[in-house]
């Protein structure tokens, strides 16, 4: 992709201090079939105490963006080929590996989808939680265990003191995800990246975990990046939403505005394609076709082969992120029509 047009930066809320600024990030994967362009010029901002939801389907580049920010990209085959990641004023991509490692875990932490595979099955959860303090803070074994119990209480695990020596498999899915959250919180990071944190959980447990995450974030005034494919999950908790498609940001907006009046046909398609409890219709408005292969992203607007309003312009010109309102941006040439139609 050639970066000919200037990409307007998605406006960020003024006021609270900006924690993370990602600018024009590019990530590629070298595969046997060719170069997969997983992230193509993504920019996003997170302020202190803000929740940014990054929404997209598989292959949209949302998880890769998170991995690049965390610095846990599999290299090779993955490679950051351009852009900047400013975190607390420092460009993470310019840091040496040791310096980045000191940022990871201590200043920013990550929560994964599959808590069972993210925890070591042969060590007790207390040991794994305490490890954070022993390694980063040089705490003694006893002290570390004490802190582990505190953390478990903080994420509302019942009978934390008696369960601290239990092993991961002895906990239920929801409890394990709480332990992952506790682990992420251990060193009081400023930014938490949660990659599909509730996807593997049941609805009733999902609600508990999301509520916990939102409470903790308020309490510590952390920045939170919530990566998800589920439009329902983010509706309640996010402040801002960034919608990704084929490695690009196609729309960014404050959460209410996005749901009220999507300014990109893809966002609109996603919203229309979920059956809603409160609206039983006969036929779902599905987005036709399939997401493109990252090896062969269509020229022009990446969404045009599936887009109901695509015109010849869309086949040729990649739309920039147009500013479409206060704090809103859309990468659609015809955003005005969409907004007018609402």
């Amino acid at each position: 992709m050639t970066q000919t047009q200037t990409q307007p930066v998605p406006p960020s809320p003024s006021g609270p201090e900006r924690l993370l600024e990602v600018r024009d990030l590019h990530v590629e994967f070298r595969t046997r079939e060719g170069v997969a362009k997983a992230v193509n010029g993504v920019s996003l901002d997170v302020a202190e105490g803000e929740t940014l939801a990054v929404l997209g389907e598989s292959g949209s580049g949302k998880s890769v963006t998170a991995q690049a920010v965390m610095g846990i990209l599999d290299t090779p085959p993955g490679r950051v080929t351009g852009g900047r990641i400013l975190f607390e004023g420092r460009d993470l991509l310019a840091l040496r590996e040791e310096e980045r490692r000191s940022v990871r875990g201590a200043r920013m932490a990550m929560i994964f989808q599959d808590a069972l595979s993210a925890l070591n099955p042969v060590l007790s959860v207390g040991y794994q939680l305490g490890e954070m303090f022993r390694v980063h803070r040089g705490s003694s074994r006893k002290e570390a265990r004490e802190r582990a119990v505190e953390l478990m209480e903080r994420v509302r695990i019942p009978a934390a003191r008696t369960r601290v020596d239990d092993y991961p498999h002895q906990f239920s899915g929801g409890m394990r995800q709480r332990i992952m959250i506790a682990m992420a919180l251990a060193l009081e990071p400023r930014l938490i990246i949660a990659d599909e944190p509730t996807t593997a959980l049941d609805v009733t447990v999902q609600a508990q975990v999301m509520e916990l995450l939102a409470d903790l974030q308020r309490e510590f005034r952390m920045g939170l990046i919530l990566i998800t494919h589920d439009l329902g999950v983010v509706a309640d908790v996010a402040d801002e939403i960034v919608v990704m498609y084929a490695g690009r940001v196609v729309e960014s907006a404050p959460v209410r505005e996005l749901y009220r009046a999507p300014a990109h046909p893809y966002t609109k398609g996603l919203l229309d394609s979920i059956p809603r409890l409160d609206q039983k219709g006969q036929q779902l408005d599905a987005v036709k076709g399939l997401p493109p292969s990252l090896l062969r992203i269509p020229p022009g607007c990446g969404f045009h082969p599936r887009c109901p309003v695509a015109r010849p312009l869309c086949h040729a010109d990649e739309p920039p992120l147009y500013e479409v309102g206060r704090g809103r941006a859309s990468a659609c040439h015809f955003w005005e029509e969409l907004l007018d139609a609402e």
Binding site: E33, G59, P291, P292, S293
Partner: peptide, 8 residues
């Protein structure tokens, strides 16, 4: 075939 896995 449009799938990501589809070879040329």
């Amino acid at each position: 075939a449009p799938g990501p896995a589809a070879p040329p």
